[in-house]
Structures are given as C-alpha cells and as structure tokens.
Design a protein around this nucleic acid. Structure first.
Length: 644
RNA sequence: CGGGACGUAGCGCAGCCUGGUAGCGCACUUGCUUGGGGUGCAAGGGGUCGCGAGUUCAAAUCUCGCCGUCCCGACCA
C-alpha cells in the first residue's frame, strides 16, 4: 500500500469498446426505421462520424465566478457539466461520455468478482429503522412522504436494501460467498456542498457488498475488492494511494481508503517519503525522537512554582526556560452519554452531573496536538466536547488554565463508573520530571512523573502526527498532503446482518449471521480527481480509457478542400480501427480549435494542415504537448503502436 | 447551524455611494474579411437588474423581508 500506481499504463483501455455505447451511432437506426426512410441515409452519413460542428460542446473562455478548484472551473469550461443548484450538477454530452466510460471500466472489473444488481433509490422508512440509521443519518438524509403520508427516504447508501435481500434469500453457507454490486445514484443532503463535483448532494456510486460465512471468507472477499479497485484505478490512469483508514465507531474492522493527492482534497493523509507507509490523519502514527528528561529538582517530589499570568503551555515553558517537550498540556473533555449511533442529539451546553456526562482529562506533551478521531476511538466512539470553566472548577476545584493530574481520584479503568478518566498520550509514557498544572491559580508543578505521581486510567495514542516526523515503519520523514477519497473498502462485520436478522445455516446446521463487507467508488470523483491531477491553465487531459474521445482531428482550414477531405479521411480511418474520434470540422480559425482541443480533456490531437500535400499530419500528445509528424497512410498503425 | 461575500444578457463584469433613457468585453445572428494558437470591420438580436413589499412624482440604485449561490468554520455513513 501507499505506493502510487503509474498512470502510464496501457493506453486505450476500453476506448474501442466504448464506440458501441455512443448514442448517436444507434438512435437513427433503432427508432422507427420505416418512417425515417431516406432521411436515415442522410443521418447516417452525417452522424456516424462525431462532428464538432453538429455536437453540443459548449466551451467557455472564462470560468464561472463561483468556481474555486481547478476541476470545477475546467469541467464547466470544457462543457462537461453545468450547475443546477448547490451540489447538483447536470452532465452534458462530453461529461456523460466520460462517466459512461468510467462506469464501463468499473463494470468490467466488478463483473470479474461479483454480480451486478440494480436497487431502488426510494426506500421505505421501516428498513432504516431496523438498522437504526433512520435516526443516525439525521439531516444528511433526504426524506419525503408519499400520498398516504408514509415516510420514505432517498438512499444514501444501500447496506439496508442489500441486507434485506440477503436475509430473505440466503439460507445456507453453501450459497456463500456472495459479492453483489450496483452502480447507482446516491443522495446525501450535505451541510455544505462545495468544490464543484468534489462534494455534492447527488452522485453516482458503485457500491458493493460481500456476504461470507466467516472472517476468513471476508478476508478473501475484501482482498478481491481491493484488487479490483487497483485494476479499476490503474485503468483510469489515476495516481493513487491506498491508505489505512480510521474504522470509526463501527468497530475495529479493517478499512482502507483509495486516495488521490490534490490541493483541492478535503482529507489529510500522512505518507512516508521512502517506504509504503500511508495512513490518514485519524490513524497515522510516527516515531518520536528520544527526549532526555529534565533533572529532578529538590527532593524529586512535585514542586510548586509560581507562574503568574502564564496560561498557555508555551508561556509557561518560556517563563521557566524549558522546552515545551518537558511540559504537559491538560485538556478537559466531557463525554456525553449520546452514542453516535443515536445521531444528532444536541449535546447539553451546561454541566449535567450523573450518568449523562462523564469527564475525561487528556494529558499531551506540550508541543503536541490532540487528534479528535483518536480520542473518539479511545472513548469507544462516544461524543465529547470541551468542558466549561465552571465544570472544571466544580469537578476538579481548579481554575481552567491550571488544571493538572495530581490529587484527583481517577478511574482505574475505562469501565469503572463515576470517576473521571485520565488518558495520557503514549508520548508521555515513561517520561519523568515534567511540568504541568497545579490545580491552583498561577501555579504549576515541576517533577511530575506519570505512573509515580499520578496514575492514568490508560495510556493511549491521542496525538496528531506532523510533517517531518519519522515514519513508524522505516524512520524516514513523513509528509502530509490533502487528498480526495475515490474509493473506500470496509470490513463491516456483523452490524447489519445482526441488526436486520440475516441468518444462514453453517455446515454444522447451526444458524449464524453472515459477515459483511462494503465497498464504494465515487464515479464522478474519478473524473474530478483525474482532472485535478492532469491540468494546466489551458485545460486538462484524461487517460484514453476515460476520455470522451481518444483523439480529436482538427481540420485547420475548412475552406481548403485538400485539408478538409484529408481530415475526414484520417478521422474515418481511425474510427474504422475502433478509436473514438472527434472531428473538429467547424468553420473556425485554427487558433480557436487548438484552444478548444487543449481544453476538453482529449488525450491526442491530430492537426491536419498544409502538410497534407505531402501526405503528412501532426499528432500532438496533450499531456506533454509533444508533436510528431505522421504519414496519413500509416496513421492507424501509428496509434496502434501507442497501445503498447 | 455560526461568520463573511455576492446576485445586473449565456459567461466575465461596470453602474448603486449621490434615485431620473440599463452599459462594457466575450459569446450569439447577418455580411465582408482572415485562415497554424481565441483575426479584423460593420450592422444586429438578447436583460421581469434574484423575488416581494415599502419610501418616492420617479427605484438596478434607498429601507425591510424572503430566496438563491459561493467562501471560512461546525459537520461529513
């Protein structure tokens, strides 16, 4: 994992097969041939070739003002998409061709490991009540009522529907394993749609679900999906990474994300410069440099020092003339009793003693940042919030800025009820003579040693790594990048089969719940990520496998008969050889055509110009702008050569 | 949901402060011109100025309300 796949894989994957999908090829023939009569011939003559002059490819010189990220600007400028509302986009001819090709690749690879279904997007409420997610999904779920007043929702994901099929149909271990998938629209009412196609409210997802008799079976299904994903993204020409992901509140099962590095990304990923290590920020760890402890002062017992006005840990360290690595940062949090499964319940703003809330105090090294996802894991997915000053005073008899671990009766373990929990970050394990709060206004303590002066409920990893720290597996520097998630594979375990009552008989005749996995790919995100990865100020370029066309043939002068007919000839030859060809036959100046050709994502361009008198055209590779003169007579052989 | 900004022709923008005939560039139509990196000239078409109230003789412009979109944050199975 972690290593980026080379995008220069085989060219022209799927390009040829996609010809058959082209709508304009087939419509005039399929529809009512007897009524079209001689017009069919005319249509066939003019439409079988994709002529720019007759297509709708509305390119723009300028991007819409509200587009921020490169892919958004360029996909709109290239005439792929138009916005309908916040996070809602229409795909026009070019955009649709590209996503259809992506779906073709996904389908081919998924068919090798599973079976395609097509599930409804309109779901009855009851189904989601069973899994508990009618409430959990909160406002992210689009909800509606039918004419009888019954509640329905638009599917955000399809675990429930798939599990419903499984529980009704699967009876025996002999029917397992199963991998079922579909390519279908998902609806999610995002709080803030943004960045063009990167965060939208309606999108196409390939989602797959596996059912196995046991964990070993799940391992196999999971790996099959993992490998299929690699093939899919390789074929789409993406440079991507597979990273370990935070498995969230659902349990400790394995989960990996397929990520594409881009400044437009919303996720932070940590990866090693040298080895394969890669993880997302919520999961990443690092090796820390060894720190020499301070010498104990006095008799080595905790020692009060007056630190007037020094509230932040940086202030205190500076005031005492030590590095922040010798200090303890104390964070007081409140666990609310609300399970994340219960969803968006408002967390009480005020201190409510009793079983509703529970205090958790975190100790971090002074220069470290707390990672909320790691905290969430540490407290078993329960929601937390910072404690209020009054709460700290009421519970610990300490002013907020001077809280420290001494003199408080901490819980011995996570399950001990009532008492506050003390979680100490692993970076402080074994450290001695640290400086921390004294629970007293304007005083700190020296000589604090964890395990001696105070006893943590647990040592846990709570720290966010920072760039440049040492890789946990090889010690080389780590880097941090933003990235877009294009796929996610997940060992679900028994969550849905248990809650929804899917059961099969195992080979001993015993009733058991099948173990599940779920696997998602964002179709439009593949296109978006590809554009993010391959663009310049003039436009973008896609791999031939996912580009709307393999090649655009530019007739540089449509008034010149030799050039015009030569461009027709070149286009026809290539099309006959199975390439998707766009012939730019518009009566435009060459400059206009070149600009458009560079903009719209087609990987190759053929300029048909004055050299046709010598039987030669110019082939331009969009990614590098490399040019090569090629004899018309060998043009198909030339392109065939590029497949290698 | 908190903070900020914007809404005038398909796209990009000016006009608003200081109320009085709705403008510019690109795109579009027609004609000529040009023909290897968004050619030049000329003549045209296109706008309920986001919606609704209010103030005024008069509102794109001032006031209030609503709607929409974008950005930052919260959130993100």
């Amino acid at each position: 994992m972690g290593s980026e796949r080379c995008p220069e894989g085989p060219l022209f994957h799927g390009g040829a097969n996609a010809v058959a999908h082209s709508p304009s090829h087939t419509i005039p023939i399929v529809y009512n041939p007897c009524r079209l009569q001689s017009k069919i011939l005319f249509r066939l003559e003019t439409v079988t070739m994709h002529r720019w002059s007759q297509l709708f490819i509305p390119t723009l010189r300028e991007a819409p003002a509200d587009a921020e990220v490169a892919s958004h600007k360029l996909l709109v400028r290239a005439g792929y998409i138009r916005q309908l509302g916040a996070g809602i986009y229409s795909f026009l001819f070019m955009g649709n061709r590209s996503t259809q090709k992506i779906m073709g690749i996904v389908r081919e690879e998924m068919d090798k490991i599973g079976q395609e279904f097509y599930l409804p997007t309109l779901h009855p409420r009851d189904l989601w009540e069973e899994s508990g997610r009618w409430t959990v999904m909160g406002e992210n779920m689009f909800r509606l009522k039918d004419r009888k007043g019954a509640d329905l929702c638009l599917g955000m994901t399809h675990e429930e529907v798939m599990t419903d099929i499984a529980r009704k149909e699967l009876r025996s271990y002999k029917q397992l394993p199963q991998i079922w998938y579909q390519i279908q629209t998902k609806f999610r009412d995002e709080p803030r749609p943004k960045s063009g196609l990167l965060r939208v409210r309606q999108f196409i997802m390939k989602d797959a679900y596996s059912f196995d008799i046991d964990a070993a079976g799940l391992d196999v299904s999971y790996l099959k999906n993992h490998d299929a994903y690699c093939r899919i993204f390789d074929r789409c020409g993406l440079k991507y990474m597979v990273i370990d992901a935070h498995s969230g509140a659902m349990g400790g099962s394995k989960s990996q994300e397929f990520m594409v590095r881009t400044p437009a990304g919303e996720d932070l990923i940590v990866s090693c410069e040298k080895c394969n290590y890669a993880a997302n920020m919520e999961k990443a760890t690092s090796k820390l440099d060894r720190v020499e402890n301070l010498k104990p002062e006095g008799d080595g017992q905790p020692l009060e020092v007056h630190t007037p006005g020094q509230k932040t840990i940086e202030d205190v360290a500076r005031f005492l003339g030590v590095s922040t690595v010798h200090t303890i940062k104390t964070l007081a949090m409140m666990i609310t009793a609300v399970e994340p499964e219960r969803g968006k319940t408002r967390i009480p703003a005020k201190w409510e003693p009793g079983p509703v809330s529970r205090a958790v105090v975190l100790l971090m090294r002074g220069d470290h940042q707390m990672n909320e996802a790691k905290l969430s894991t540490a407290v078993a997915g329960k929601e937390t919030r910072p404690m209020q000053e009054e709460e700290i005073r009421a519970l610990f008899h300490s002013p907020a800025g001077y809280l420290g671990p001494l003199g408080i009766d901490w819980a011995k373990n996570m399950d001990e009820p009532g008492k506050p929990i003390l979680l100490v970050d692993k970076a402080l394990e074994g450290r001695a003579n640290l400086i921390g709060g004294a629970n007293k206004d304007e005083y700190h303590l020296k000589n604090l040693t964890s395990g001696k002066d105070f006893h943590p409920t647990a040592y846990v990893d709570l720290r966010s790594v920072t760039a440049g720290e040492a890789c946990p597996s090889c010690g080389s520097p780590l880097r941090i990048d933003t990235a877009v998630e294009i796929g996610h594979i997940f060992k679900l375990g028994y969550k849905y089969s248990e809650s929804m009552g899917a059961r099969v008989l195992d080979r001993n005749g015993k009733e058991v719940a099948p173990i599940m996995g779920s696997y998602g790919i964002g179709i439009e995100r593949i296109l978006t990520a590809a554009v993010e990865q391959n663009n310049d100020e003039n436009g973008f370029w896609l791999a031939p496998s996912i580009a709307p066309f393999d090649v655009v043939v530019v007739s540089t002068n449509s008034k010149d008969e030799a050039i015009r007919s030569a461009s027709e000839d070149v286009a026809r030859q290539l099309e006959a050889s199975g390439y998707d060809v766009l012939l730019d036959d518009r009566d435009e100046r060459p400059g206009v055509k070149f600009k458009d050709a560079d903009l719209v994502g087609i990987p190759f361009r053929i300029n048909v110009g004055n050299k046709v008198t010598e039987g030669t055209v110019e082939v331009v590779r969009r990614s590098t702008l490399q040019r090569e003169e090629v004899k018309i007579s060998v043009i198909t052989e030339y392109f065939r050569g590029l497949r290698q």
